[in-house]
Structures are given as structure tokens and as C-alpha cells.
């Protein structure tokens, strides 16, 4: 059998003592199910992370984003993204951050992607829509029929604010009402999906059941409507890893992820059909690898300026212990469950 090629993680937050020695290799687990080495099956989602600048500082953020972060995608890199996008048949462009709307090239990326006939998704923290500097943002998104993927971990203030900061829940509700007024969540062309992240060291429950609960409660309490709810598992990296370690939850959380490994979810992991571009043009298999500084490897070009569909569409995926987060239970991806 091929040697286990679990790549060492370079993230300073990720303690080797607590990881490689303690839990079974992800690649070994893949091998047991005939999935090693994991390979991409194409590029259907062209995900662009424009940087770490954000108007919020959420406790679980895997990007470690915040108002003081200066990493931002330049116009040159944004244009290189569009040139690369043109070389692919990827139907979807997924723009994320930080708060991606705060990047000066966000609107260029939206317009240029739409001009190429691609569907565009904006991963929004919602509160950015209320910033004075972004007063025309909601209208901009609606005019271009940009799908909004909005973070809302719970339908009550206490748990939402505990994760995302004091007062965020009330502003998020105000922003959702604004989007509803513009037709989001009501007009089929204006998709409004919510992202549910557990507000602690536990896994998300059944996505459909959570969606029913959120729809009922948000409608009953605030008359808010949305399309789908995506239940996303918090991966043990960056700030969420800090939380796990500080609260003594790390080992048990990892045990739950490892014990819940689902081969069907592993077959459907998002990295197989996604390419993730970092703010500086580096290429990654997913946004999580991006935050661990694990670029694509195994002969694939590492920068957007060297983009090659041929070398990237069936590239071998770089994996690590954090990948157990996407393969636990019903699976997890930027689009919710996968299995």
C-alpha cells in the first residue's frame, strides 16, 4: 500500500501533539474505502477568497478575519481570476472572505463573472449590508441576481451574538428583512440561503430538520423568508480550534468527527469539484486548506497566473486531519450536507 501521505499541517494553531499521534490518518481512512488518493473530478465551483478584512470578528471564524486584517486581493489578481475563469466551464463563482463585499474589487468580480455567464454567490455576513459605505450593496446584488449565502447560526440573539459578536443578531435580522423587501427569498431568481454553524463544540443536526425549524421560527418571529439552510460543520482550525483547546473540548470533538466518518460524504467532498483561490492568487483545494497555507500540490500549478484547467481539474487533493470535518455524518461543504 502507498505510504500514508498525510501532509503535516503548518498552521501554528494546530498542535501536532494533539493531532497526528492521537487520531488515525485521514488518508488511511480514505484508503480503507478505496478513496485514496482523493482526486478532483472537475472545477464546478470557482471559489475566490478576496481577503481577510471583515467588519465582524466571529469566535468560530476559520479565516481569522476581522477589521484589522490587511490581506486583500488586488485588481491584478482579480483580473487574473477572471482570465482563469474564462478558461473553465465552471458554472458557479463563489466569492468569500472576510466580508468579501468590502474588497474594492468585489463588484468587478461579480460583473466580470456575470459577463461570462456564470452564476455568482456572495458569502455575506449580513451586517455588511447595513454599513453606511455599503448602502447600495443590497440593490447591487439584487440587480445582478447574485445568490446570497448568509451566515445566521441561530434564530435567537443569545446564541448568534455569542458566536458573532454583541448586537450582530439584531442587525442580521434587519439585513434579512432588507433582502426580503428586495425580493430575496421570495423571487426564484433571488436566492437567499442561510448558513447554520453550530454555536459550540457539537456537530450540526439533520439539515432538513434544522431548515424547517429556522423557517418556522424566522417567519413566526420576524416574518423573514429564505430558500435553503446549509448546515456546516465547524472545522478544527484557526479560531474554532482555539476555542476547542481553551475549553478542553478538542479531543472529544475530534473523536466525534473521526467516529462519524462517512465514506459517502468522503466521495462527495466539495474539494473534488471546487478550486479555491486565495487573496494573493495562490490556489488551494478548499477554503480550509487555504487557511492552513496548504496550497494545491502533486504537480498542480500553485498560483492563478499559472492556471491550467488540464493540470487542475483532476488534481490530487491535499488532505489533513481537519478533513474529517467534511466527512462526518451527513458531510459538510460550503453548500451544506453532501451525503
Amino acid at each position: 500500500m502507498e505510504a500514508q501521505l498525510e501532509l503535516p499541517t503548518r498552521n501554528a494553531h494546530f498542535s501536532p501533539r494533539l493531532s497526528e499521534e492521537r487520531f488515525p490518518s485521514f488518508n488511511a481512512r480514505l484508503a480503507r474505502h478505496g478513496l485514496h488518493p482523493l482526486r478532483a473530478t472537475g472545477i464546478e465551483v470557482f471559489q475566490i477568497n478576496v481577503g481577510k478584512l471583515c467588519n465582524q470578528t466571529c469566535r468560530h471564524c476559520h479565516v481569522d478575519a476581522g477589521p484589522d486584517r490587511t490581506e486583500r486581493m488586488t485588481r491584478d489578481t482579480a483580473e487574473a481570476c477572471i482570465r482563469a475563469l474564462e478558461l473553465t466551464d465552471a458554472p458557479t463563482v463563489d466569492i468569500t472572505g472576510g466580508a468579501p463585499e468590502l474588497n474594492e474589487n468585489f463588484r468587478y468580480l461579480v460583473d466580470a463573472s456575470k459577463a461570462l455567464g456564470r452564476h455568482v454567490m456572495d458569502r455575506s455576513n449580513l451586517t455588511v449590508l447595513l454599513l453606511r459605505s455599503q448602502s447600495d450593496l443590497a440593490g447591487f446584488l439584487a440587480d445582478r441576481e447574485v445568490e446570497v449565502i448568509a451566515s445566521l447560526p441561530y434564530f435567537l440573539a443569545e446564541r448568534t451574538d455569542a458566536q458573532r459578536g454583541a448586537g450582530v443578531f439584531d442587525k442580521s435580522i434587519e439585513a434579512l428583512k432588507l433582502l426580503n423587501r428586495l425580493g430575496y427569498g421570495r423571487d426564484p431568481a433571488l436566492r437567499l440561503n442561510l448558513v447554520y454553524n453550530p454555536t459550540g463544540a457539537f456537530l450540526p443536526g439533520d439539515q432538513d430538520a434544522l431548515e424547517r425549524e429556522f423557517k418556522r421560527e424566522l417567519d413566526r418571529r420576524y416574518q423573514i423568508r429564505f430558500d435553503r439552510l446549509f448546515a456546516i460543520t465547524n472545522l478544527p482550525i484557526s479560531r474554532f480550534l482555539d476555542f476547542l483547546l481553551e475549553t478542553g473540548n478538542y479531543e472529544r470533538y475530534m473523536e466525534r468527527l473521526v467516529n462519524a466518518f462517512n465514506p459517502a460524504a468522503a466521495r462527495a467532498v466539495m474539494c473534488r469539484n471546487t478550486l479555491s483561490v486565495g487573496w494573493d492568487g495562490q490556489l488551494y483545494d478548499c477554503d480550509f486548506n487555504q487557511m492552513l497555507d496548504e496550497t494545491v500540490a502533486f504537480g498542480a500549478p500553485k498560483h492563478i497566473r499559472d492556471f491550467s484547467t488540464e493540470l487542475l481539474e483532476n488534481r490530487r487533493i491535499v488532505t489533513g486531519l481537519h478533513c474529517y470535518g467534511c466527512t462526518a455524518g451527513a458531510g459538510s461543504s460550503c453548500g451544506g450536507t453532501t451525503a
Binding site: 441561530y154 435567537l156 443569545e158 446564541r159 453550530p198 459550540g200 457539537f202 456537530l203 450540526p204 443536526g205 439533520d206 430538520a209 434544522l210 425549524e213 429556522f214
Partner: peptide
């Protein structure tokens, strides 16, 4: 307790 949280119940 964990199961209730995972299923979306609140405190």
C-alpha cells in the same frame, strides 16, 4: 445535552 444542541434546541 449534546444531542439536543445538535438538533437545534436552545437552552
Amino acid at each position: 445535552s449534546q444531542e439536543c444542541l445538535e438538533k437545534g434546541s436552545n437552552l
